[in-house]
C-alpha cells in the first residue's frame, strides 16, 4: 500500500494542460524521485500533493486520505506530518535562522524553550549551519537558505518530506553532504522522501525509484538502473543531458518558422 497514491491526475493552467492522466505511487520508507524538463509541473505536483492546488480531475491520496476531500482542520493535521522544502526556501524574512527553524515547534508544540533550543541546534548542526543561527535570511546565500529550510522541514519529524530542487545552488561539498543527509534521514527516521530534481547523477545515486515526467504524462518509471538501461531515446537524452533528441527545449507553441514567417507578412 503506497503512502502517496496519485490516480488519473489532470490539472490545467488556463487552457494549458499541466497534467493529463498521471498515475504515481510513492512507497513508505523509499526515496522517490520525480524528474523532468523545466516547466513540466514538478513543483505544481508537489503543491497538489500538499493540498495547495486542486486537481481538475483525479485523486491524490496521502496515507489513505484523499487530500482534496479533507476538511480544513484535517488537511492541516495532515500537513503537520508532511515536510516540504520549497524551491526558494521560503524562509520567514523577519525571523533569524534560529527562529525560522524553531517556528514549527513553537507553533505546534508546547515544548519548553530550553528543549526547543537544543532541538533547533541539533537540526542546524546536521545541515552545517549551527553557527549561522543568528543571521537573518537576507544574509544567507541561496544554498544556505535552502539548507536552513531543510532543517526547518524536519523539525516536526514528519512522516514524509517533499524536496523541491534540494541540490540547486550547492557547491560540490555541501551537495555531497546534502545527498548523504537526505539518504541518512530517510533511513534513520523511516521517512518517505519525494525528490524533485534536475541533478540526474545525484538523484539517481540515492533514489529507489524514479518517475520521468514530460508534457503532462509519466514518460518512464523504474529504478535508476532500469532507467539507465532504458531503450527509449527520450530517457537516454534526459538521463545523459544530451542537447539533441526528442526532449523539447522550447516552451510549446508556434514553431520558429511560423513566427518569423508571420512577422514578415504583417510588416
Amino acid at each position: 500500500m503506497p503512502l502517496i497514491k496519485i490516480r488519473d491526475l489532470h490539472f490545467y493552467r488556463g487552457n494549458r494542460a499541466i497534467f493529463e492522466g498521471v498515475n504515481i505511487d510513492i512507497y513508505q520508507g523509499k526515496i522517490t524521485a520525480i524528474m523532468g524538463p523545466s516547466g513540466t509541473g514538478k513543483t505544481t505536483l508537489l503543491r497538489l500533493i500538499g493540498g495547495q492546488l486542486r486537481p481538475d480531475r483525479g485523486t491524490i491520496e496521502v496515507d489513505g486520505q484523499n487530500v482534496h476531500k479533507l476538511s480544513h482542520s484535517d488537511l492541516y493535521a495532515l500537513r503537520k506530518r508532511m515536510g516540504m522544502l520549497f524551491q526558494s526556501g521560503a524562509l520567514l524574512t523577519d525571523l533569524t535562522v534560529f527562529d525560522n527553524v524553531a517556528f514549527p515547534l513553537r507553533e505546534h508544540t508546547k515544548l519548553p524553550e530550553s528543549m526547543i533550543h537544543d532541538l533547533v541546534l541539533m537540526k542546524l548542526q546536521s545541515v552545517g549551519l549551527r553557527n549561522a543561527r543568528d543571521l537573518m535570511p537576507s544574509e544567507l546565500s541561496g544554498g544556505m537558505a535552502r539548507r536552513v529550510a531543510l532543517a526547518r522541514a524536519v523539525t516536526l519529524d514528519p512522516m514524509m518530506i517533499m524536496y523541491d530542487e534540494p541540490f540547486t545552488g550547492q557547491d560540490p561539498i555541501s551537495m555531497g553532504t546534502l545527498v548523504n543527509l537526505i539518504h541518512r534521514m530517510n533511513d534513520a527516521m523511516d521517512l518517505t522522501s519525494v525528490i524533485v530534481s534536475h541533478d540526474v547523477a545525484e538523484t539517481a545515486e540515492i533514489a529507489d525509484y524514479i518517475y520521468l515526467l514530460s508534457a503532462g504524462k509519466v514518460i518512464e518509471k523504474g529504478s535508476p538502473v532500469q532507467l539507465k538501461r532504458s531503450s527509449s531515446q527520450w530517457v537516454q537524452q534526459f538521463m545523459q543531458g544530451l542537447p539533441d533528441g526528442p526532449v523539447p527545449f522550447h516552451y510549446p507553441g508556434d514553431t520558429l518558422e511560423d513566427d518569423l514567417f508571420s512577422q514578415k507578412v504583417s510588416t
Binding site: R47, G50, Y76, R79, F86, S88, A90, L92, T93, E107
Partner: peptide
C-alpha cells in the same frame, strides 16, 4: 517570496 505558502505547508494557517 512563498512565505505564506511555506507557512501553509508547515500547517500554520
Amino acid at each position: 517570496t512563498e512565505q505564506l505558502s511555506g507557512m501553509e505547508m508547515m500547517a500554520v494557517d
